[in-house]
Design a protein around this nucleic acid. Structure first.
Lengths: 234, 234
DNA sequence: GGTCATCCTTGATGTATATCAATTTGGTTT
DNA sequence: AAACCAAATTGATATACATCAAGGATGACC
């Protein structure tokens, strides 16, 4: 059973009229995934794109030496692999597996491509969406190379904040810390040390996957002025 | 005087018919840039996009502490800043300045956006172009985080190779080494050490901005197995 | 409720790259 | 050719993070 409201709330689909939406849904199917089950692998021919309805999906690459780098963790309500859709003979640039028992809706590229040809508004919407993604990536490269590990961890936590203006907040990491570490291109050990240094400085408190941020402002500042590794309590 | 052939060879424009091309060119103007002259700055309202006809343009960001990170070096025949075009009130995500005396053709976003609304083929072409860019970025993130500095240097040199199948080649770096270093997110010192280690291992020879690659195959292997810093002659 | 397997934490050590500092080289201008 | 300036090189040292290794904590399953 498809959650039509979830589909309707996807930004990219918001321009579809009722008839187009109906057509899209006709070619849509829900896929159940167990924990660690793989949806598609790097290099496979890309015939479909996906919307997460429940759980979490990791998109990742495996390097020659067998190390896995998580590119993104996709949460409910978010699309993925839609960038390949209109390329003929496109191949998935990453692998996708479920971090938890999950459900995704699977859309046919071809059906959507047909709509793209009919609706210019849709086409422009997709352009805007891709271009925003591209800008986000430029920022990402920025962060990876210009900033240090502590900065990235803080950025990740700030992203999880629903309301960026609250001064204190409680957030749920939702995935194993090692997964977050991979996403941030650091080792689990380093992530642990960074978090605990913050805790020692009374900026956050850690309770398993639940992190309480005591002061968002001091969290931001910590990234600018401190090096986590050797920073003592002050 | 516009080099119409150069414009016609741009992949994105190849789908335009003669009339559309004429319309585009009517709103196009050539801009001359001196060395170090800035074309636009980060955050400025993006009304135009560009094609390099002569010289080299660097796209970069400046971090809070004043360090500049070069995101890309754009060469003749390549477009830049076209990803912002159809976003209303878009802002440039980077700054652009000339590395040498250069010439760029400047296109109006609005004129092009009008064409986009008329031509679905053009729209799809742009989608494909952006999506390829997105994939390239995913690869880039991959390289930045998974690989080491030596690997990135090798990747940069292999990219400059016109024919990737030749076993030996001579290539012109064309820009100061410090610019390349910034592009690769390393310091000039580290770049120098890496190049000279390769030279000591008889893989390349260095003559100012001219690098002779003695064996492309050995160059590739060097990235996989070696650490440049402490690798001796073998 | 104990056992087992993950995940997380903590410490000791290693290393790739940055930083700082001093020459050297190369290209421009006089 | 001399003088000058930016770019490149080279060496010494510092440091952020990784790696290796050894416990702890947590939760699932019988």
């Amino acid at each position: 059973m498809l959650d039509e409201q979830l589909v309707r709330n996807v930004h990219l689909f918001s321009v579809l009229d009722d008839e187009q939406l109906a057509t899209l849904l006709r070619y849509t199917r829900a896929v159940q995934l167990q924990e660690n089950e793989t949806l598609f692998e790097f290099g496979q021919s890309a015939e479909r794109f996906y919307l997460v309805s429940k759980g979490q999906i990791k998109l990742f690459r495996v390097s020659e030496d067998g190390n896995e780098k998580i590119i993104e963790i996709v949460s409910p309500g978010k699309l993925f692999a839609e960038a390949v859709m209109f390329m003929q003979h496109g191949r998935y640039p990453v692998s996708a597996t479920a971090l938890q028992p999950s459900e995704v809706y699977s859309f046919e590229n071809r059906a959507f491509a047909t709509m793209l040809q009919e609706s210019n508004g849709l086409c422009l919407k997709l352009l805007a969406s891709l271009s925003m993604r591209l800008h986000a990536q430029v920022n990402e490269i920025d962060n990876l190379s210009l900033q240090n590990a502590t900065f990235r961890v803080i950025g990740y936590m700030l992203d999880l904040l629903s309301d960026p203006r609250t001064e204190s907040a409680v957030l749920d990491l939702a995935v194993p810390k090692q997964v977050i570490a991979s996403r941030l291109s650091i080792t689990p050990e380093t992530l642990s040390r960074i978090l605990h240094t913050m805790a020692r400085n009374d900026i956050i408190s850690i309770n398993g996957k639940i992190i309480a941020i005591k002061s968002v402002q001091r969290l931001r500042e910590f990234g600018r002025y401190d090096r986590a590794q050797y920073a003592g309590v002050r």
